[in-house]
């Protein structure tokens, strides 16, 4: 019974749509996070002086402080972005696929 349902879903074009859309979105967001983080790590390792640049003339804070904070905020924003789409659009598509089994 279950096996049969799985086979039918696998043949459903909507399922292909769901998985390809969702995985493209997930990989895109993962790539953004990886590029930003490892880009930052490389700057930390090779050109720390760039992060030491002062925020403005006469400032004590360096640009590294807001950049670091921005990476933390970005990490969180990416998660909200993913869930906003996954829990609405993708979830609806998912429900449709399961409905069509009946």
């Amino acid at each position: 019974m279950q096996e049969d349902a799985y086979a039918r879903i696998l043949a459903n074009p909507r399922f292909l749509e769901l998985t390809s859309k969702r995985s493209r979105f997930a990989w895109l967001l993962s790539a953004i996070m990886l590029v930003v983080f490892y880009g930052y790590v490389l700057v930390v390792a090779f050109r720390p002086d760039l992060l030491a640049t002062k925020l403005y003339d006469g400032a004590t804070l360096s640009v590294g402080v807001p950049i670091g904070a921005a990476i933390i905020v970005l990490a969180w924003l990416l998660t909200t972005l993913y869930v906003a789409r996954a829990n609405t659009e993708f979830e609806r598509l998912n429900q449709q696929i399961i409905e069509e089994l009946k």
Binding site: L29, S30, F37, V41
Partner: peptide, 13 residues
């Protein structure tokens, strides 16, 4: 701190 956080989005995605 940053290195400790950035794994989480990937776990989600």
């Amino acid at each position: 701190s940053i290195a400790f956080l950035v794994g989480w989005p990937l776990i989600l995605f």
